[in-house]
Amino acid sequence: MPKVSMTVNGKEVSGNIDSRTLLVQFLRDTLRLTGTHVGCDTSQCGCCVVHVDGKALKSCTVLALTLEGANVMTIEGLATDGKLHPMQEAFRENHALQCGFCTPGMIMTSVDIVNRKGNKLDEQTIRHELEGNLCRCTGYHNIVKAVAAGAEAMGK
């Protein structure tokens, strides 16, 4: 089986994997980083969003082998030194999660939105930018609030 090496949440990792292995499978099954979820098989739900080289990607739609040498960050790597990331805090503070299943992907997407669009985000922009992430519990209302609040907090 071919070998792949990459950096995940700051750590060098490698594994011999079946060519078919998707990034999300490498994360969940090989590395046991089960915070990244799989909610669909057509690249729509966004439960699997992680950052690859600083950009949000759907880890269910990329082969692990493609990412040789890449820098991957998952939800488990977002908090640093035991301190929650401002977007994580904002999700908790604004009750932007219920069952929690979409939450890791939602938070990783939200951080990516701020990285691209800055710290002042209006409601319409946030709703549009969340196009690739489905939530079935919240009706999005509190997620939108959380992203706005998290974006501001990230600027401080």
């Binding site: 980083l33 089960t34 915070g35 939800i75 929650l84 999660l97 929690g100 299943f101 890791p104």
Partner: peptide, 12 residues
């Protein structure tokens, strides 16, 4: 319950 969900530590 949120701490485990926002840090990817839920157990589904």
């Amino acid at each position: 319950e949120d701490l485990r969900f926002i840090t990817g530590r839920g157990q589904y």
